[in-house]
């Protein structure tokens, strides 16, 4: 996984609440056995018209937001299915950070496994960022994971929380299977104990 570096990027405002994973990546694209190339299908049903052409009204199709690297979203972003195709599609499109008042748990976890930073902020701060994002490509948000801040184009800064271990993994681009396997002795010990205590499992 690539290291997550601080960046300054265009943010697309998507104020709709409960943006679900079926919206993010419709089920017809789940039949791939690869993780790459899904960006073109991100938000497919909202992004394309019935004839396959782009819907000019959809945010990410407008010139200002075609190269967005951040989404500022409504409450409960990523609810629904556990499909990791949702973060894969987001990442492949070029989005590296999603900001909302809340995220669905499974989507939230999946983001970190794919080098995407989900940021939870209170409503008032998301409202400020949403307004800033609405200014289009001239307004860029600064995302600084090291110092845990988001800064608007007008210089207003908000601090966010992130789990220290997840932050470390994002910053270093670490594969956590490798990290876990370093603890194989502890896993062996636990399993030996568990199979004595509960031999029926």
């Amino acid at each position: 996984m690539d290291k997550f570096e601080s960046f300054s990027g265009v943010a697309a405002p998507m104020p709709l609440v409960n943006i679900d994973t079926d919206m993010i990546i419709p089920k017809q694209f789940l039949k791939t056995i690869k993780r790459s190339g899904l960006g073109v299908n991100l938000f497919a049903e909202m992004r394309y018209l019935d004839d396959g052409s782009e819907n000019p009204d959809f945010m990410l199709n407008t010139p200002a937001y075609r190269n967005a690297e951040i989404i500022v979203a409504g409450d409960n972003f990523g609810c629904g299915s556990s499909r990791e195709h949702a973060p894969w599609a987001i990442k492949d499109f070029g989005i590296k950070c999603v900001i909302a008042t809340s995220f669905a748990d499974i989507f939230f976890n999946n983001c970190f496994k794919n080098g995407i930073l989900p940021i939870v902020l209170p409503q008032e701060q998301v409202d400020v960022l949403m307004k800033d994002a609405e200014k289009g490509s001239n307004a860029r948000l600064d995302i600084d994971l090291e110092n845990q801040t988001v800064t608007t184009s007008e210089g207003e800064s908000f601090a966010f929380e992130v789990d220290p271990f997840r932050k470390h993994c994002l910053l270093e681009g670490l594969d956590d299977i490798g990290l876990t396997l370093e603890k194989v002795t502890s896993i062996d010990g636990f399993e030996a104990q568990a199979s004595q205590a509960r031999p029926w499992v």
């Binding site: 876990t180 396997l181 194989v184 896993i187």
Partner: peptide
């Protein structure tokens, strides 16, 4: 019992563990 994403499935298959809070 809970749902997980593909990367976490891979983690479980390889390690029989999952990092959780």
């Amino acid at each position: 019992a809970h749902g997980i994403g593909t990367s976490e499935v891979e983690h479980v298959l390889a390690t029989q563990t999952l990092i959780q809070s």
